[in-house]
Amino acid sequence: MGMGPVVRQIKDALDDTPVHVRQLAEMFRKHGQKQNRNTSGVNDLDATDVPQSLRDGWNTNGPTPNQVVDAGKGNRPNPDTYLDEDYITQHLDQFANGATRIYRTDSILDWGPGNNQVPGNATNTAYVFPTDQLNNLMQQVNSPTELAQALGLPSDFFEGADVQLRDFGPEDLAGLRMPSGNEGGTDVDHWIPGGYLPSGIPEAVIDIPADATGWQNGDGVLDQSRWPGSRRDLDL
């Protein structure tokens, strides 16, 4: 049985594309749930789905995107082995005005603002977005469902949920770095190396103090003064 017309056009469009762009394009397409793209968009698949900076900033002397992902959470290489230094610097510069994360209120009260603060883990981190870009996104979307999808969250994440923003000023961005895919909170099914969500929103990782805990993993005292950043209500 021959290839269908869409599959054939995808193959033809990507035959002359560098391996890293081809693999990244497939990740962005797949994880962005764009499988229903029609043939009119196929020829620009790499340009449409993969940020230009990431295409240019991938170090082709290092592991390929598939090799990074396939290494598995806990074994993935440091991003500086496959991303150019200039790319990493420019990516993190997007967080110069601060970073923000969205939390379910019950989750942050139970566990604090970090992802890893559980017995046996020595590190405590959080994925964050540039505050100014997240603010712009929230002004552009037309519904809570659109916001959830743009942030790689389940479509019903905000429905009936008590959620809040936490803004981290530049002084709160301890250990700001590219995600390696080994951090707590990494979505093992949708994570893409290079610091972008499938929708093109930049992400990074910061360190959270070990004592910034909640009811379930702390010392029995919910002391939010230990938490970096400040709460902001999410108005959708």
Rank of each mutant, 00 (worst) to 15 (best):
I102L: 05
I192L: 07
N36K: 15
D106C: 08
P179W: 00
N43V: 07
P179C: 05
G214A: 04
D233W: 01
D172A: 08
N43A: 13
A99I: 05
Q139F: 01
P202I: 02
L222W: 04
L236C: 03
G112V: 02
M27H: 11
P77G: 07
G220W: 01
D80I: 13
P144W: 04
L45G: 04
D44G: 12
A71F: 00
L134I: 01
L151W: 05
K11I: 15
A13I: 10
G181Q: 01
G152L: 06
D86Q: 15
F157N: 09
Y87G: 10
D211T: 08
D223P: 07
G195L: 02
W111Y: 14
N142F: 00
Q67L: 05
N97Q: 14
S107H: 09
G152T: 08
P77Y: 07
N142K: 08
N43R: 12
V163N: 12
G98N: 06
A126S: 14
P144K: 05
A122N: 12
D223T: 11
N115K: 09
E85V: 14
P77V: 09
D70Y: 09
T48W: 11
Q52E: 15
I208S: 09
A150R: 09
T64P: 00
A126P: 05
S180K: 07
G185E: 06
R22S: 12
A212K: 06
S225P: 00
G98I: 00
D233P: 00
P209A: 08
K11G: 14
W215Q: 12
R101V: 05
N78P: 01
